[in-house]
């Protein structure tokens, strides 16, 4: 594991180049199968961003957060309000994205500050409540002053525009047709690489070690001279900022958002990605996000033909069996690999 990831080995460099080439070619290959798959891949990248943010809070610092999707929602709504006909404001993306990250960050501190003394189940309950409060606010802030447009949500949200480059239309470069989803794929991939690097640097930094110490034993961490208050707030703030950025991208990609996108199940889903992939392991978390996005979609398309091949007719509706199999997979996974597909200890340097 560590040998292949050694940045100095020539084999590793060759591998890295190969992976990079594969990732760059991927959307075109997927587009051959159907644009839907490019969109699903984009969703997986978006969830990977989210899961990496949540991993800072849950995986590194060990603070169980069940309301994480609220930060995604804040980021998405900031984008929607600053780049849509709703208020008739159309700011460029490089202005909105930092604002969205900052807004989510402030909400992160808002959640973190009163819960500093809580851990485990107690913290989970408070964060769950927080997530619901944010969602209910989004749902109801349409009266007396219309801020969020309530349950109808905000539509006709601007796509990302960089100069002349519009991410909602197809453009041609060097004889290749770059559709909207393909352009978003590259943008999200870029974000993911940046967030991955930030995460890796964090993990081995002083602050990363302080988070791990808090996760293991908070009293001992304080006895080491760690200011647990500020270090925990930092975890909440950073995790939330990543969520905010992902939310902004989500809003621009979908061009429509409503409070329904930010329900508790989404928080649970992101948490499941972190836990399934391997809490505290960056690569595990990305893998968890990709798997949990793709598996239900693959099942959606394969359940019907498989049944027809096996029994000659369809016995169970795809929608029914899909989540059943998915749930079963999660249960089995946790029974046989409780610390995730790639447990955090794998990263240990020998």
């Amino acid at each position: 594991m560590t040998a292949t990831r050694d940045p100095r080995g020539p084999l590793a460099i060759a591998g890295l180049v190969l992976v990079a080439a594969a990732l760059l070619a991927l959307p075109f290959a997927l587009a051959q199968v159907g644009t839907a798959w490019v969109r699903i891949t984009n969703l997986a990248l978006l969830f990977a961003l989210l899961a990496l943010g949540l991993n800072i809070v849950v995986g590194f610092a060990g603070l169980l957060d069940l309301g994480y999707i609220a930060f995604y929602g804040v980021g998405a709504y900031v984008w929607a309000m600053l780049a849509s006909p709703h208020f008739n404001i159309h700011l460029p993306f490089w202005v909105i994205l930092p604002i969205g990250a900052l807004a989510a960050c402030i909400f992160g501190v808002l959640l973190g500050a009163p819960t500093l003394k809580l851990r485990g189940d107690y913290l989970a309950i408070v964060t769950l409540g927080f997530g619901e409060i944010v969602r209910i606010f989004l749902n109801n802030l349409s009266r007396p002053v219309n801020i969020t447009n309530g349950p109808q949500g905000i539509s006709r949200i601007d796509p990302v525009r960089i100069g002349e480059l519009d991410f909602s239309t197809t453009s041609k470069f060097a004889g290749l047709a770059f559709s909207g989803p393909i352009k978003y794929y590259y943008l999200l991939l870029l974000f993911l690489v940046v967030v991955l690097i930030v995460n890796m640097r964090l993990q081995d930094s002083r602050i990363g070690r302080a988070w791990q110490a808090i996760r293991e034993d908070e009293i001992a961490a304080r006895a080491m001279g760690i200011n647990t208050t500020s270090v925990k707030l930092l975890a909440f703030a950073m995790g939330a900022s990543f969520g905010g950025i992902a939310g902004g991208m989500f809003a621009s990609m979908q061009s429509f958002i409503s409070p329904e996108s930010f329900i508790l199940v989404e928080s649970v889903m992101v948490l499941a990605m972190v836990v399934l992939g391997g809490m505290g392991n960056i690569w595990g978390v990305v893998l968890g996000a990709v798997l949990l996005t793709f598996v239900p979609e693959i099942l959606r398309y394969t359940v019907e033909p498989l049944q027809k091949a096996a029994f000659g007719r369809m016995i169970i509706e795809p929608e029914v069996i899909r989540m059943l199999l998915f749930g079963l997979a999660l249960v089995l996974m946790m029974l046989f690999r409780p610390s995730g597909i790639l447990p955090a200890s794998v990263r240990r340097r020998g």
Partner: peptide, 23 residues
């Protein structure tokens, strides 16, 4: 607060050892 005291040369070995188990 404790984290400030460590810098002044006051160190605690907590009850039950409190080692960071996964590190």
């Amino acid at each position: 607060r404790s984290f400030a005291l460590v810098r002044q040369g006051l160190a605690l070995v907590p009850e039950g050892r409190g080692v960071f188990g996964q590190l």
